[in-house]
Design a binder for these strands. Structure first.
Lengths: 221, 221
DNA sequence: AAACAAATTTAAGTATACTTAAAATAAAAA
DNA sequence: TTTTTATTTTAAGTATACTTAAATTTGTTT
């Protein structure tokens, strides 16, 4: 079994590749995990010996098939815990990530299946993110786009709220920005990269960071 | 925060002291945790620097008040998880210990309170063992005694089944030995330390190991 | 294309949690 | 009481996961 440090490295690499589509070198993983790049380089070398990632000096990192399988296994546990903590124990949106981040590493496949079964094998977590299935398959492309990329004068439904801090969720909640909400894009401000939308008969100006944490879709789910 | 290794050391020391009442030296903890005694001595010295245990060379180990508080905090999480996994997710008696053993170390006090609240602040876990409260108080002496110490011709109710392996629970289940069952002690065999009891109109002969995992009480709970 | 800046890698060192092997001490037996 | 046995402790060494500091490589600018 892999250590917590290895699991977090693999998980972060998966996230950068699939969610952000970035060219990932040890430095960016280091920044994300709060370690030095030398530590990340070291870990990259070790994980490549275990055939979990592809690593060539100065090149971008890539997960191997078995590394990707491992990432999806952890991601499944993370999202199952988030769903469980929210739906069953009533933890709020900003609390679930913090707790799931710890529990995911100490969860057997056996327990993950019990949780999934209890929840009725959900396909989405409370953020609207898809939960990989037990075989490690996930559909990352549900047709949704970041609000920052949405077209002016079009209507959309909110499909994902991918934040983890209290401020973000407090703002979303108080502005009727929840999964399923209907919104309209009014205007893109090219200078400061803000975006103006209309929700619930209210105009809102959002900055780019928020506009990338909110994902939208043309059709209702 | 303390490491998993430290937490397991502290927990084991607590267990030996309160549950088994033994004179605990590094060697016995080492045997329990599957490490060498030199590793245990080392850990004992480190934990005594943190004022979690009292340690003098060649003497028995003792928890300090803050060490005991820490042990009870972990024990609370362990027993809350066991209760939760059994009652909510339907895991069987031999599965809950294994999973709780992992989860207990990654559970915040915050999450423990949520679990406790969800369960209605239970006082006993599925084994019949008391759950320490959030302040770290527990009543270890509920008046029950190991079946091995019970008196001939007396009637008792089963109050605790403190095992963790499948065989034990399979045997208990198939013999109607569950918490609350009424039993009668027929005879103690002094030679081989077996004990004969009557449950559900059936005579059973138990060996000493089993007779110490089963705790009994005169009154119904 | 040379020079500078930014990032990555290597090298050396630390803390944790172990290991094995030898030395010291305590407990038990002769 | 001495000897033997068992246990504990110390010493030295390993793997993991980091750190800082220096060297190397890459990317960018002029």
């Amino acid at each position: 079994m892999e250590s917590i440090a290895s699991e977090n490295f693999i998980k972060t690499l998966y996230h950068f590749h699939h969610v952000q589509g970035k060219d990932t070198k040890p430095g960016s993983i280091a920044r994300e995990l709060g370690i030095t790049s030398s530590a990340a380089t070291d870990m990259a070398r070790k994980l490549s010996l275990k055939k979990l990632i592809q690593y060539e000096k100065y090149k971008a990192l890539k997960l191997t098939p078995s590394g990707e399988k491992m990432a999806l296994n952890i991601l499944r546990k993370h999202r199952l815990w988030e769903t469980f903590l929210h739906q069953v124990l009533g933890l709020s949106m900003h609390e679930i990530h913090r707790e799931a981040e710890l529990l995911e590493h100490q969860t057997s496949d056996f327990l993950a299946e019990k949780i999934s079964l209890y929840l009725g094998n959900p396909e989405k977590d409370p953020h609207g993110d898809p939960i990989p299935n037990a075989k490690g398959w996930v559909n990352n492309d549900d047709g949704s786009i970041p609000l920052a990329m949405a077209h002016v004068n079009h209507h959309y439904f909110i499909s994902r709220l991918s934040g983890s801090d209290k401020e973000f969720f407090d703002f979303c909640h108080s502005s009727h920005l929840i999964i399923g909400s209907l919104i309209r894009v009014n205007k893109h401000y090219t200078i400061n990269q803000m975006i103006e939308i209309e929700v619930n008969n209210t105009r809102l100006i959002l900055n780019k960071v928020f506009a990338q944490m909110i994902h939208v879709k043309r059709e209702k789910e």
